[in-house]
Structures are given as structure tokens and as C-alpha cells.
Design a protein around this nucleic acid. Structure first.
Lengths: 139, 139
DNA sequence: CTGTATTTGATGTATATGCAACTAATTATC
DNA sequence: GATAATTAGTTGCATATACATCAAATACAG
């Protein structure tokens, strides 16, 4: 097998190559649907994660979303700037608690139809994603 | 269903949320394995894509990887800076052709064991990814 | 042909992401 | 109780990514 065929083989069988491409395509669908709300899919992710656990902490978000702490730190700060969340004192002087504001709740509510649309769009473009993701054992 | 439960529901069922998390986790495995070579998974993606079609063009990479053209432009430029690829004249005066250099080929060769390791690591951490990706109909 | 539309890349700007190094606070060790 | 280790978040830096806009080249319509 020459270098070219080997590369082709890698390109076809690499989990990362395929997953990352899928990720770009799918994320684009969601970004399109959320654009009218001035919302990105990454911000939407954080919003729902925060909404699902009122009074959560950055650390919890790090764990539940497998994000780097610095990413959470900066993205949450940005969302605070937009008035969607408030950052308050936590149990420790180290920790913080994050809450949705009224505006944040309202935004989520408004964006829900767009989310449903994105879900549909994704299934249509990519196939049976539910079935696909069902298999994954991510904590 | 109150707002919190609704958010939980979205968080659990959103394709983007789950896919993006999986993408981060998996990409991290590859990045770790490639780090000793000064290579990122994104660069590896491009390298194998270029190797698989010697003399490809940015446009082709855009199409085959579903990347934005500006992303390809800048990433390929960076890889040229590292001496892994050369950018030459294309058929048009608009287009370019991209070639792996000897160093680029050598790097791919060297990194192959790391890639295999990353594949294994991923299967171990995430489950049967092959089965999972088999279902996807991405062009 | 000539003027318009399309294609191909480059560049400006913004977001998302991660690693390394840092600080402050807390916990564990002795 | 003092010191070491760990934890929580922030900040500096770099890469990856996308959208909008631009310029140059080519293709197309008349």
C-alpha cells in the first residue's frame, strides 16, 4: 500500500476525522437556526446546562459538558455581559453560582422552536442521529 | 413541565449538545497522542486529506472536509510555514495546488502509530465508535 | 465582444476551545 | 497549628472555526 492509499485509508477510518466533520456540519445547522436570536450553539449548550441545574457552578459545567475550565470561565462571562446569567457567590470563597436571569429564561423559551427546527434539519441532513448517539456511553 | 425539566429534556435530547461533547472528548484523545509530534488533530486531518489526493486544491479540501474556505486558507498557510506542504500554481490563476513536502510525508509516517493509539483509546473511552459512525451519511 | 455573474482565495473580525501558569482558598498531613 | 497538596477560577497565549467583505480571474448572457 503506497503512501497515498494509506492516507486514504486513514482519512476514511479515522474517528476524529469523521466525527469532527459531522460536528461542523451539525453545528452549522444549529447556528443557522439560532442566528436570529443572536445565539450560538455553544451558548445555547451552556444556557440549557445552566437552566437544567439552577445555581450550578463553573466546575459542574466543566464536568457535565467536558469543557475546559477556562472555556467555561470566559463563555459564561460573555453570557453575563449579554444579561443572560448572573454570577454570584458560592459556598466557598473560591466557588461561584450561576443563575439564569429573566432575560436568559425568556431567550431559551423563544429559541425553543428554532431548536426543534434544528433537530429536524439535522435528522434530515445526516440520517438517524438519535440511533447513532444512543450508542455512546459518555458520562 | 417546568422550565428546569424542559431544559433537562433539551440537554439530554439535543444532537448538537451530545455530538459537540463527544467531539471535544475524542478530539482531546487525538490531540494528546499527536502532541509529541507538534501536531494537532485538525492539522492531521488536513495532512491526510492532502496526502490522499496529491495536488489537491483548497476548494477540494473545503468540499471534502466541510470546512469554511477561510479556515482552510489559514490552516494550510500555517502548515506551509511549518514546512509540511507547498502551495503552488493551479490550473487557473485563481486556484492553487497543494502538495505534501518530504517533511510532511515523513511526519505522517511517524505519526501513524500515534494515530492508531488514538483510535484505540477512543474506542476504549467511548464505546463502539465505528458502529456509531457507520450510520452517518455524510458526503 | 462587453458587461454581469460566479468562482477562488485572502483578510478583517468574532467566537470557541485548550494548555500552561498563576492566585486565592480550602483541605490534608504531620 | 504550620506546611504541603489540592481545588476553583482567571489570564496569557495559541489554534480552529465561521461569516462578511473584498479582489482577481474566469465563465456566461446578450
Amino acid at each position: 500500500m503506497d503512501a497515498k492509499d494509506q492516507a486514504l485509508n486513514v482519512a476514511r477510518n479515522c474517528f476524529a476525522v469523521r466525527l469532527r466533520k459531522l460536528n461542523r456540519v451539525v453545528s452549522r445547522h444549529y447556528d443557522e437556526c439560532f442566528r436570529p436570536f443572536g445565539l450560538t450553539v455553544a451558548q445555547f449548550n451552556l444556557l440549557v446546562a445552566i437552566a437544567a441545574r439552577e445555581g450550578t457552578t463553573p466546575s459542574e459545567l466543566v464536568a457535565s459538558l467536558s469543557l475546559e475550565k477556562s472555556t467555561v470561565s470566559r463563555n459564561v462571562e460573555k453570557m453575563q455581559g449579554k444579561g443572560w446569567v448572573t454570577i454570584g457567590a458560592g459556598e466557598d470563597k473560591r466557588t461561584q453560582t450561576i443563575q439564569l436571569t429573566k432575560a436568559g429564561e425568556a431567550l431559551l423559551e423563544e429559541a425553543l422552536p428554532a431548536w426543534k427546527e434544528a433537530q429536524k434539519k439535522t435528522e434530515k441532513a445526516v440520517g438517524n442521529v438519535s440511533l447513532l448517539l444512543k450508542e455512546i456511553s459518555l458520562t
